[in-house]
Design a protein around this nucleic acid. Structure first.
Lengths: 200, 200
DNA sequence: GTCTATAAAGGGATAGAC
DNA sequence: GTCTATCCCTTTATAGAC
């Protein structure tokens, strides 16, 4: 077999992801990726035409995974609490395995927001109306404010993602070891549901 | 006067900050900074020995401002609600003027957490004991849990910072214009205090 | 598919005139 | 203080042998 091997390509993608997540597009080096994979640059260019193309593949994959967690939670027709728990669990576990991915996406989107265009060209998969409806029908006064769904959504994502994204900072502020901080992040899952929904 | 002009240096720092905040250390180009300042690379190297040194200055300045907001809130002896309001206002306004700085700090610390060392070498300015005490004495059951101060603190920072940091993503998800999103961020100030402290 | 060698461009840094 | 010209290392990308 001499045609491009898909499993090799996937292996290279995984390795490239780690490097890109850590260093970003401009900080990553093709040489470093090749070294980590035990091949040379020429080989890497054989599988991916250019650094740009390799990066795009890595980035769209990371973004896709991140957005799919959101989309699943928002399009689900589960009750509110279950929806939240589902998102919090999914996101926390995903980020615990790839802590650098959140800062990576934020940093790269900062520079090129148009990279999102691909995702939202056809349909805006993510619709807050469903969530808004659920919030309003709780009857809770705090969920009657304007933009209640927008705030609730922003809160939920922020509470899950930021503590991972800012781990280097927060961990030092709290004087936690790495494993203490991981335990802290796990502890937050219940805490986040609590703070968002209270006794509901 | 032929000796290095401090006001020129400050002007260069401001311009360099914008570029570094947007593109990071590895993405920024000395040429671009020089162009934006209307000078040439040689001049830039006259004021700052190297790109590395220019970056360090920019980074430590950004980090210092970010941490000072936290330190002020935590060391203040104001009552809890006032403390929170103070932090939220300070941080929101600061980030509205420099939206890229949050992602910049996160991205650069991800790669070089040791850049924090300078800040925490002598004293750990930031101490959660004071906050913990205030939370416990509210009598509120939800503030009796373990790590209550850590969670409260992480929540507060996350709710303020993440929506700015992830603006390119969230803005598109919510289909807001830039000014709509800014209004949303201002609206969040009251919302964040409310969600953190409730009717307390 | 895999390698070595090298072309080609980019970008940080400095020499030296003014 | 400010500029032009240039050095030189790094890094992407490809040519071409096996």
């Amino acid at each position: 077999m001499n045609r491009m091997d898909a499993s090799t390509r996937d292996r290279l993608l995984d390795i490239a992801s780690e490097v890109f997540h850590q260093k970003g597009l401009s900080g990553a080096r093709m040489q470093e990726i090749a070294d980590a994979a035990g091949i040379n640059k020429a080989m890497l260019h054989y599988y991916f035409k250019s650094k740009e193309q390799l990066f795009d593949t890595v980035f769209q994959q990371a973004l896709g995974q991140f957005l799919s967690g959101i989309a699943q939670a928002l399009t689900s027709d589960a009750p509110l609490r279950q929806k939240v728990e589902q998102y919090v669990t999914y996101t926390t576990e995903a980020l615990l395995h790839k802590p650098a991915v959140a800062a990576f996406i934020a940093h790269e989107l900062q520079q090129h927001p148009e990279r999102l265009a691909t995702r939202f060209a056809d349909q805006s998969l993510i619709n807050l109306d469903n969530l808004r409806q659920q919030l309003l029908t709780t009857g809770q006064p705090r969920f009657q404010a304007t933009n209640t769904a927008e705030h609730f959504f922003a809160d939920m994502v922020a509470l899950c993602v930021y503590p991972v994204l800012a781990q280097p900072l927060l961990r030092r502020l709290m004087q936690h070891t790495e494993s203490q901080y991981q335990a802290f992040l796990r502890e937050r899952q219940a805490h986040i549901t609590q703070i968002l929904l209270g006794q509901l």
